[in-house]
Design a protein around this nucleic acid. Sequence first.
DNA 1: ACTTTAGGCAAGGCGCGACTTGCATGTCAA
DNA 2: TTGACATGCAAGTCGCGCCTTGCCTAAAGT
Lengths: 94, 94
Amino acid sequence: MVHVFRALDDETRRLVLDELSVRDGQTLFEICSVLTMRHGLSLTRQAISQHLGVLESAGLVVTERRGRSKFHYFNPEPLAEITGRWPTRKRTEQ
Amino acid sequence: MVHVFRALDDETRRLVLDELSVRDGQTLFEICSVLTMRHGLSLTRQAISQHLGVLESAGLVVTERRGRSKFHYFNPEPLAEITGRWPTRKRTEQ
DNA sequence: ACTTTAGGCAAGGCGCGACTTGCATGTCAA
DNA sequence: TTGACATGCAAGTCGCGCCTTGCCTAAAGT
């Protein structure tokens, strides 16, 4: 089980979440190609796969397998832990 | 300049923000002792100092120096980057 | 059955971040 | 000014995370 904060501490994983926000339910290869085309990333398929594993372990991505394809969906629920941990207020006067 | 996501990817730094949320404007030694007492941490003063440096570099902590003391204040503003990056909606149907 | 396609598993390299140790700087009190 | 207090700087160790390479499993097409 990977912590949400650690999952978000990587620009590639954040870009993956960006992409899934635009178009949900993409496969590994689709994510690979769109990351290469639109963001100039040159990573191997395994690298992206490991990133997706981290995101899934953190609960930020849920998957569904159909045949030989695996579809990835963005799940924003764990983000609530971040927004709820600290009160969003202005700093107090000293 | 440290990224907000990286600054938050450390339980010690998150505890520091927790403590500053409870009582703002603490010095390095105060943070050290309260982390040791209340959270069972056994870190050196330098370790905590480096953590505070990361938080300050990320903009999550602002400081003010008076004499030989340095006071640390929690600044929640950078957290907006997290909450604003991804839409908080339920996942679409496939 | 054979090939192609989509993905998984495991080991290794490599760099960076967390932490420590030691010394230096600057401030306040007596 | 001398000593104690609060913090800063720098080098070094060590573990872990990111990425690659290589091989394997399984589903679909022909």
